[in-house]
Simulated assay, not measured.
Amino acid sequence: MLGARSRNKPPGAPIGVDPSRTAVRLTRVTKRYGRGPDAAAALDDVSTSIAAGGFTAVMGPSGSGKSTFLHCAAGLDRPTSGTVQLGGQVLGELDEKRLTRFRRTRVGFVFQAFNLLPSLTVEQNITLPLRLAGAGTDHDSVHGVTAAVGLTGLLDRRPSQLSGGQQQRVAIARALITRPEVIFADEPTGALDPDTADGILTLLRRAVTDLHQTVVMVTHDPVAAQRTDQVLFLAEGRLVRRVESPSAAEVTSVMTELRRSR
């Protein structure tokens, strides 16, 4: 089982959320592609903060800037202007080598395509961030994480021997193994059937509730979004709305409104 850690929670705050500590802060972030008059702004002067210990969805119509938001917030891409702060570290202050090391140890990633190395076993894929960072492998932690995501007995298998849902569980375990500041998930259920997707969302929810991890998830699915604590809506590169304790119906309504206003 995922081990719980107790934390004080002010009245009305989602379980685990620590509003006194910011996990991610974007300040006037703009990201442009191209140069001159033909340059396109994927993000346009976006400012927001995400409290530690919460589950946040990022949504918007196609081309709204969702993936660019995630890439800039996670340090996978650098903004054209503005600042990104993750776990107290201003990412723009780090050169490429230090930024890579920071991502390995303090940021977790879960992608739609799983991104597992086919030649490695389940255990080797999970512990890859530790080995790349030159850190030792704590076998108790490995077995605790794999048990929590339902991979007990599968550590010696290769990705090709796993179902899609099992491969995504490996990716989640790999994201959890370093106990990062934030886990960024980009359409983590997009390639899965509804029942398997529900299991993956349950794991991400438990990572937040039981381990007090911070999860930021890009999704197009209102059903997935209703499992989160809040939804940030983007449109044409701008942050246009924030909805707390979302329902699928409310998310669908906002998305319909945004598509009609384009």
Rank of each mutant, 00 (worst) to 15 (best):
S67I: 01
D18N: 14
T137L: 03
G3K: 14
L26H: 04
V122K: 06
L91H: 06
A173V: 00
E236S: 15
G150M: 07
D186E: 09
T189A: 09
R98I: 00
G165Y: 11
R131W: 05
R241C: 01
D193V: 03
A74T: 02
E123G: 14
N115H: 15
A73V: 03
V142L: 14
R241H: 15
S64I: 04
G36N: 04
A73S: 10
D195Q: 15
D45N: 11
G88E: 06
D210F: 10
H212W: 01
T100V: 08
R262E: 14
D138N: 13
A113F: 15
P180I: 04
D95V: 00
G108H: 10
E181H: 13
R7D: 13
R158K: 15
S62I: 10
P37Q: 11
L70Y: 13
L132W: 06
T80N: 01
Y33E: 06
R179W: 00
V149R: 12
S64R: 03
A207T: 08
A52T: 02
D198Q: 12
A224C: 02
P194Y: 02
G92C: 10
R260G: 01
T189C: 10
A51K: 01
M59A: 09
A41T: 00
E181Q: 10
G164H: 06
G3M: 11
T100K: 01
R7A: 15
A4T: 15
F184A: 08
G199S: 10
G136F: 02
P222N: 05
D193K: 04
L99R: 10
D140N: 07
A249T: 15
R227I: 01
I50M: 12
L117D: 06
A51I: 09
D229T: 09
A235M: 03
G36Q: 02
T214S: 08
I15S: 12
T146W: 07
T219M: 09
G87V: 02
L154V: 00
T256E: 12
T189F: 11
N125H: 11
D229A: 03
K66S: 09
R103K: 03
T105W: 00
K9F: 00
L2Y: 11
G75R: 02
G60A: 12
F184K: 09
I50V: 15
H212M: 05
R101E: 14
M59R: 03
A23F: 05
V208W: 00
R5G: 12
R7K: 04
G16E: 02
P19H: 05
V149I: 08
I183M: 04
D18Q: 13
E181R: 05
P180A: 07
A113C: 05
H139V: 15
Q124T: 13
L120T: 01
L201D: 11
L43P: 02
A171E: 05
A133R: 08
P129M: 12
R262T: 13
I126F: 10
